[in-house]
């Protein structure tokens, strides 16, 4: 356990908190997050996503959380903020690949009242 945390520390303090990967599937903007979503990384994440939404003009977003290994309540603000942004243009937001611990924070924040969760990308694209 300690050894794993050590490698993780090195990775973390190498300055990489969160990496974002953008992809487009028809009229859906797919955003894959990799890393840790906290107050420190939230600002950059927010700016990068908003820029991409403005640039592509897409109003349907799928967040892929498979690479997010930590999130605190700062993440709730980030997701609700993006939801509000695309909502103005009749858009919607879905989430895929939530880890159990992060799902608990989503539930606490009441996010599933406004955002749908799917098991995988195929299902999300089909039903979204």
């Amino acid at each position: 356990m300690v050894f794993i945390e050590y490698i993780y520390c090195k990775f973390l303090f190498g300055g990489i908190w969160m990496q974002l990967f953008f992809d487009r599937k028809d009229d859906v903007l797919l955003i894959k997050l990799m890393g840790e979503l906290d107050h420190h990384s939230a600002e950059e994440v927010r700016i990068k996503i908003d820029n991409k939404i403005d640039e592509t003009g897409l109003n349907k977003i799928i967040f892929d959380f498979s690479g997010v290994n930590f999130m605190d309540s700062s993440g709730i603000g980030v997701i609700i903020g993006r939801y509000k942004k695309v909502k103005e243009f009749n858009g919607k937001v879905a989430i895929i690949n939530l880890k159990p611990h992060i799902k608990k924070i989503f539930e606490l924040g009441g996010l599933f009242k406004i955002i749908k969760e799917y098991d995988n990308l195929q299902k999300a694209l089909l039903e979204f």
């Binding site: 356990m1 945390e5 993780y8 973390l12 303090f13 906290d38 107050h39 930590f70 159990p100 611990h101």
Partner: peptide, 27 residues
């Protein structure tokens, strides 16, 4: 913020916590 939660997780690891317990404390 990340430094603090990793330090507490490392300190708590002497109690042989489960992954879930450790995630709770870190958050």
């Amino acid at each position: 913020e990340a430094f603090a939660r990793v330090v507490v997780a490392a300190f708590a690891s002497q109690l042989d916590p489960t992954i879930e317990e450790l995630s709770d404390v870190k958050t």
